[in-house]
């Protein structure tokens, strides 16, 4: 063992005048150690991340099924169909799904951001039961998407609990709304769309609050104390000091939220009982699963996955280039 150490880098060691054993970073690395530490992870990672992604790209050039994914080479036809295809065979316009994803991404920021900042500022103050309040507010975040979806399906049933409560507080006129089946004329006029947005807000706002609280705890108390001594009111302190300093956290949360919105699948799938098309709630991911799993056209589904990936990547890079870039200088 120690002989291995001696032969490490004798020249450097004599030059520095210290014994080789004192400089472990210069010790020779033995191949089996390198292999032992890196190979298992690399194998799992390459075989189950890179290989599937590459395989998916190849599949997207075929119109195969689950049993024979590489049958029937069609070149770029799948991609052309995605962008130009109509409602043939009941398949929705891909653009409906893209529009839904973008709307959900933007509205998630607009709805969750302000509410979460407000609650985080509130919970950051000294108050009784703060620990318990913090803990309970995060409960939705720990409830799985499936249980959340099932729960709200039951709450929102016609003549369900929400309808009864609405009637009790005198809002009987809207108690009969078909929360999960009234699509209006589509897009933002769809009640279903806003219901889904509300459920998404309920589920994911806890994540925003956790992140904002972490960001707030990183703001030194000295700053707000100094402002207080100078006679600033609570609102002034929040507006002029806390919020600007919370900026980097908000921007990173927004990034994670946008990426998450583009991958959205579980909640929509459950809330619409695995049939989002009927209520106009397709997202790119549900469209991919419908085509790839339910219709067994894995080639076409993989093409959708490729488009989903490219769109997410473009949005992510644009966001990084124009918004996250501001923070890089400050953070490092």
């Amino acid at each position: 063992m120690s002989t291995n150490v001696e032969v490490g880098e004798p020249r450097a060691d004599t030059a520095r005048g210290s014994s080789p054993a004192l400089r472990p970073s210069k010790r020779k690395v033995r191949w089996f150690e390198v292999a032992g530490f890196t190979v298992p992870a690399l194998v799992v990672y390459v075989a189950f991340v890179f290989v599937p992604i590459g395989f998916g790209v190849v599949m997207s050039l075929h119109d195969g099924s689950r049993i024979a994914p590489l049958n029937n080479f069609v070149g770029l036809d799948n991609f052309i169909n995605i962008f130009t295809g109509g409602r043939m065979f009941g398949q929705p316009f891909f653009w409906d799904a893209v529009r839904n994803n973008f709307l959900i991404a933007i509205l998630s920021l607009l709805l969750q951001g302000p509410i979460a900042i407000g609650i985080a500022l509130l919970l950051n103050r000294k108050m009784k039961f703060r620990g318990i309040v913090r803990m309970l507010i995060f409960v939705p975040w720990i409830v799985s998407e499936v249980i959340t979806g099932v729960m709200f399906q039951m709450l929102l049933m016609p003549n369900g609990a929400i309808a009864v409560w609405l009637e009790r507080i005198g809002l009987g006129s809207i108690a009969g709304t078909q929360w999960l089946a009234d699509i209006g004329t589509g897009g933002l006029t769809s009640v279903t769309f806003w219901t889904v947005m509300a459920v998404l807000t309920w589920k994911y706002i806890g994540m925003a609050i956790i992140l904002f609280l972490a960001g707030l705890s990183g703001i030194p108390d000295e700053l707000t104390e100094a402002a207080q001594i100078d006679g600033a009111s609570w609102w002034q302190i929040q507006r002029k000091i806390t919020l600007p300093l919370l900026g980097p956290t908000v921007r990173i949360w927004a990034f994670l939220s946008i990426i998450g919105s583009f991958q959205l699948f579980d909640m929509i799938w459950i809330l619409t009982r695995a049939n989002p098309t009927i209520v106009g709630m397709d997202t790119m991911a549900t469209y991919m699963v419908q085509v790839g799993m339910s219709r067994d056209r894995v080639g076409y589904g993989s093409a959708i996955a490729v488009v989903l990936f490219v769109i997410t990547l473009i949005v992510a890079l644009t966001y990084q280039r124009f918004i996250l870039n501001r923070d890089i200088g400050k953070e490092s």
Binding site: P52, S302, V306, A316
Partner: peptide
């Protein structure tokens, strides 16, 4: 480089790889 290889994986959400993963697992 090893770090970059793993960091690159952050760009590939599991959703994107689900269909090929399913077929490979099969």
């Amino acid at each position: 480089a090893l770090f970059s290889v793993f960091a690159a994986g952050l760009m590939f959400p599991a959703t994107v790889g689900i269909l090929p993963t399913w077929i490979i697992i099969n």
